[in-house]
Design a protein around this nucleic acid. Structure first.
Lengths: 194, 194
DNA sequence: CAGGAGTGACTGAATCGCCATTCATTTGTA
DNA sequence: TACAAATGAATGGCGATTCAGTCACTCCTG
């Protein structure tokens, strides 16, 4: 019975290797070396190289969403929740910069990940955002003349681009320090008519 | 001397093939077949398979930016320019759905394209957006308490996510019909304090 | 308690399919 | 005839995946 521990060990090694070299430039044997095991061992835990990437994303994404969900639950209203969500989105990426590299750059590999596996995982996050938006609309804090789906995409897109830019640049500034500006634009744009 | 015509013929075939199968699942021979030529002929016009993708993006992107630049020049003020830019961003992708597929999904291949070649091309578009924002700020139409770079990323991110979503869904609605909502949120968020 | 044999995890060298790229040859035309 | 352009079968390299063997450990059994 494979040690449940080694699964995690491989995932962590893969994050580091993918972040450093990119998915396609990473050998399975590189991951093995980084994890301190033989390359064949990887195949006791994962069926293919692709599966490593997909699994890695699934697990990390689930963790991410859970963290954000828990944090915003503590906030009093939709505006505060949204601010917290944005701040945390940036903070978590900032604190896991290798994972950020993988998520923002490597995981965008066409077909395979955008469609396919990762779509499901991302939608959990989308749902979370939508629920906050709906709460704010119901409470009359947000305008409700626009489709929630559209508003959600605008917000996610803005955050995602901030993150991608930060990763592509050499992370030469604090991503989390931009959170307020993003929240500010978005919340003003979303404000209910007075 | 290779016919200058065939270069274009290959590019157009590549767009269709990449859109249909994704970059990594496309054989060079598939592109050749689609273009109605032999696979070896491709190498009279392009050094590598990568070069096809990079060239394709460069040419199409330059065309895209030129079109948008020309269109917004005709608008009277920054607000109108921004609305036009957003509308056209969506309209052009909608009218070239195969290219949209390639740009939104396939061209995000980590490392190679994000960094590297395409970065330069994209920055031309970024500059265009920035110039409109600066014009609006100078004219007192947009608030100027936020960094232009941040605002630009928010807008681009929002548009890009709208486009990606539309492509990933089965393009089951008119992307351009969402332009107003996006412009509306963004312009309200950016409005100068009254 | 020695030993031995069964079990499951691990290893890493060898395999093997894939496909970009090459280039000897053919085709077209001036 | 000569030169350019095009062809497409053959090549070559790469690296994911496999699998025959090794290792470590447990549990019998005489």
């Amino acid at each position: 019975m494979p040690e449940p521990d080694k699964h995690q060990q491989i995932i962590e090694a893969a994050v580091r290797i993918f972040a450093r070299n990119g998915y396609y430039n990473s050998r399975v044997s590189d991951i093995a070396k980084e994890a301190g095991i033989a390359s064949g061992t990887i195949y006791l835990y994962f069926k293919t190289k692709d599966e490593i990437l997909v699994t890695l994303f699934r697990e990390k994404m689930a963790e991410f969403v859970a963290t954000v969900r828990k944090a915003i639950a503590a906030e009093p209203d939709a505006v505060a929740k949204l601010r917290r969500l944005i701040a945390l989105h940036f903070k978590l990426l900032e604190d896991h910069s290798e994972m950020a590299e993988v998520v923002q750059v490597e995981l965008r590999q066409g077909q395979k990940f955008f469609r396919g596996a990762s779509a499901n995982e991302v939608s959990g996050y989308f749902d979370l955002i939508s629920s906050v938006l709906e709460e704010g609309m119901a409470a009359g804090m947000f305008r409700s003349d626009l489709p929630v789906k559209t508003v959600r995409k605008v917000l996610f897109g803005a955050m995602d681009q901030m993150a991608t830019s930060w990763v592509l640049g050499k992370r030469g500034y604090k991503l989390s320090e931009t959170a307020e500006a993003v929240a500010d634009i978005f919340l003003k744009g979303l404000a209910a008519k007075p």
